[in-house]
């Protein structure tokens, strides 16, 4: 593999781990934030909303459940549109160079 391709691949890999890492951090923040709120802020989590028909805790729990597939969808979109095309190009360039 030529040097510039090598460098491009390394940059793409770094980018991919960075995107995955940031999204993992968001998921962790949402989930552990929810857990810590439930543990330390029982009164806040138990506050009733909408004519006392639902609690803050239930709303936030449902939000964390919804965040999971939303983040996953964002990642898949990113990977399909931003990551796969340059990777595919690298792959085909490499094939061409091989005898």
């Amino acid at each position: 593999m030529a040097d510039d391709q090598e460098a491009e691949l390394a940059a793409l890999i770094r980018k991919k781990w960075r995107v995955g890492g940031v999204l993992t951090a968001i998921m962790m923040a949402a989930y552990f934030g929810f857990i810590l709120l439930v543990a330390f802020g029982k009164d806040t989590a138990g506050t009733l909303l909408a004519d006392d028909r639902i609690s803050v805790g239930i709303v936030l729990g449902a939000v964390v459940i919804l965040i999971a597939p939303i983040l996953t969808a964002i990642y898949v979109r990113w990977a399909n549109h931003q990551h796969d095309p340059p990777m595919a190009k690298l792959r085909s360039d490499r094939k061409k160079q091989q005898p």
Partner: peptide, 24 residues
């Protein structure tokens, strides 16, 4: 009541991690 929800959330949150870091 509410306490059960803590488990529902916990059983799910590993899946995004699989997507972002492991599967591919």
């Amino acid at each position: 009541g509410f306490d059960g929800l803590i488990y529902s959330v916990g059983w799910l949150v590993g899946w995004p991690v699989i997507t972002f870091l492991i599967a591919e």
